[in-house]
């Protein structure tokens, strides 16, 4: 994965461009899965109920910390696609200020086609992870 884009919006656009290179969803899923394989390791001691994200068939944990002006997230899953989705979300939301996070519209999901493929009824945790990210940012802004 290349270096993170300077803004959430730039990251979203980059992802949209990258997804457009594939003409079918099997290849897009492979791309998502490969992104997930490059996630930094997640310390075992953070796998606690506090950091657990419910609403997913797989196990998902998301840890967050304030790093100066920015919010730093770490997350992991025992499933490959969810790990890839974490990588997608990290590229957009990680190491941004809470204000930047709040200003980043989740409409990119639609542009990526992820809303249709990974709807909440498929209990893949994508929406639950997004909700957690916005909640954390909201608390930090307040």
């Amino acid at each position: 994965m290349s270096a993170q884009e300077p803004t959430p919006q730039a990251a979203q656009q980059a992802l949209i461009d990258e997804f457009a290179m594939f003409d079918n969803w099997m290849d897009r899923y492979q791309y998502i899965i490969d992104m997930g394989k490059q996630l930094p390791s997640f310390p075992e001691e953070w796998k606690t109920p506090e950091y657990k994200i419910e609403g997913c068939q797989s196990n998902v944990w998301m840890h967050h910390a304030r790093d100066g002006e920015r919010l730093h997230f770490d997350a992991t899953s025992d499933a490959a696609i969810v790990s890839g989705l974490i990588a997608v979300l990290m590229r957009i939301y990680n190491d941004r200020s809470p204000q930047e996070v709040m200003a980043a519209e989740p409409s990119f999901l639609e542009a990526l086609g992820l809303d249709k493929h990974l709807s909440p009824t498929r209990s893949n945790g994508l929406h639950a992870m997004l909700t957690r990210i916005y909640e954390v940012a909201q608390r930090e802004v307040a």
């Binding site: 899923y29 997913c56 025992d78 499933a79």
Partner: peptide, 21 residues
């Protein structure tokens, strides 16, 4: 090395409906 959720989502792309969970 392959979570049931991944298998269920991906195999659906190939038209195969199984249940996972």
């Amino acid at each position: 090395g392959a979570h049931a959720q991944d298998i269920g989502l991906l195999i659906d792309q190939l038209g195969v409906a199984i249940r996972t969970g």
